[in-house]
Amino acid sequence: MQYKELLDQLRAHIVNLFQTKNDERFIYHNLQHTEQVVQNVIRIADHYQLSERDHFVVVAASWFHDLGYLFDCRQHEAKGAELAAEFLKDKALPEDIILDVKGCIMATKMPQQPEGLLQQIVCDADLFHLGSDSFKVRNKLMRMEVEAFCDKQIDKAEWRTKTIGLFKTHHYHTDFCQNLLNSKKAENLAEMEGKEGKGKSKPQPEKKVELIEEKSKMTEKPKRGIETMFRISSTNHQRLSDMADNKAHIMISTNSIILSVILSLLLRKLEDNPHLIIPTLLLLIICVITMVFSILATRPSIPEGLFTTEDIKEKKVNLLFFGNFYRMSLEDYKNGMNKMMDDRDFLYGSLIKDVYSQGVVLGRKYRLLRIAYSVFMFGIIAAVLAFIIASAVVTL
């Protein structure tokens, strides 16, 4: 069964529904939230190495899990399960897959009571943000959405109290999320409890909107700008590296042809033309030196391919470069990558190291290529002059 193709069709279907039934009041339960939950599901599912069938079930459920909000906010889980069943039946999927998808969607209903790993994965992905750095922003967006639908302001302290209650009754179901998120979830809870009872004055509605907008500017826009910067820098470095390799290939090919001509033609005639020995040897040496530097410019340098847990803790290793992990086991590499993705400083630090390393390699390549081109340019001139002088001497 073509699960990947079905997921692509499913995604397009969900995106189309969110666009056609767009409601500005859905500040939290929108397409962005759904896409984040899908990403969380895929991350957890990859950890447990689910089969293609089970992977399809949890990803499909995550796409539909909040779609019911567009039709019936009070019974959105049931509506989402109904919409999922309709879509999957049209695709002629087996009944057992449809039932599993519906079960995963219904399991997200509060209080969550998932049965089995698949339902646990979807439930943990839905409330993944409770144990992440994005909790504050997501929580504010949720409160603004409730206010938009209720058409009234909600006291900040009252909302905090309800959120604390949610934290205390909620727990992650999968071992993966427990190990990954419980620590940060506890920090978020402690911070809310620390603010509880301090009697801070309630901000005016205008101030509250300004705070949300300011937070968005401080988090989303710089984050996107930084990621765009890294992506463009890495792409430019890759293009420059390809150009360097092409230049080296040209020099190697050109000098290989010249060497072939020298070895096959000129060397045979040196006995009859001894005056050409020096120019021929000069040209031979120039070609060899040029080829050596061109080869050095493209000669790969690979590290040991190993890293330790201490390297991860101290954030010394760059897991984005294959040379640092190609001899590691998949499990060790996945653990290292998960820790890096959960630590913003570690992640951006690795991206910085990756861009810097690319620059260092490029610097070495172009330095060697400059030497090769310089030797070839001045050497060819010298060799041609040597041939002219040798021929002139013989003529005289």
Rank of each mutant, 00 (worst) to 15 (best):
Y3S: 01
N16Y: 07
L17Q: 06
Q19C: 08
F26M: 03
I27Y: 07
L31E: 02
Q32R: 10
H33D: 03
H33C: 04
Q39M: 13
N40T: 11
I42Y: 00
I44A: 08
D46F: 09
D46G: 15
Q49P: 03
S51W: 12
E52S: 14
D54S: 11
F56A: 00
A60T: 07
W63L: 06
H65A: 05
L67A: 05
L67Y: 04
G68K: 03
D72R: 09
R74Q: 14
H76M: 07
G80Q: 08
A81R: 06
A81K: 06
E82N: 14
K89P: 00
L93C: 12
P94M: 03
D96N: 11
G103W: 03
T108Q: 02
Q113S: 07
E115Q: 12
L117R: 13
I121F: 10
F128D: 00
F128C: 04
L130E: 02
S132G: 04
S132T: 14
R138W: 04
R143D: 06
R143T: 10
E145H: 12
E158Q: 12
T161E: 12
T163M: 15
L166I: 14
T169S: 15
H173L: 07
C177S: 15
C177I: 03
Q178F: 02
N179G: 10
N179E: 13
N179K: 13
N182Q: 09
S183V: 07
E196D: 06
E196H: 09
G197Y: 12
G199V: 12
G199D: 07
Q204R: 07
V209Q: 15
V209P: 00
E210R: 15
E210Q: 15
E210L: 14
L211M: 13
I212T: 11
T219W: 09
K221D: 01
R224Y: 07
I226S: 09
F230E: 01
R231V: 02
R231A: 12
I232D: 12
N236M: 13
R239Q: 08
L240N: 03
D242K: 15
I252W: 05
I262M: 08
L263H: 07
S264V: 14
S264K: 04
L267H: 00
L267K: 00
D272M: 08
D272T: 09
I277V: 15
P279I: 09
T280E: 05
L282T: 11
L282S: 04
L283P: 01
I285P: 05
V288A: 15
F293S: 03
I295T: 13
L296P: 00
L296W: 08
I302D: 08
P303F: 06
F307E: 02
T308V: 11
E310Y: 10
F321Y: 10
R327I: 07
K334P: 01
N338L: 05
M341L: 14
D345L: 10
F346C: 03
F346T: 04
F346I: 10
K353S: 02
R364D: 01
A372H: 06
M377R: 14
A383N: 02
V384Y: 02
L385K: 01
I388F: 13
V393L: 15
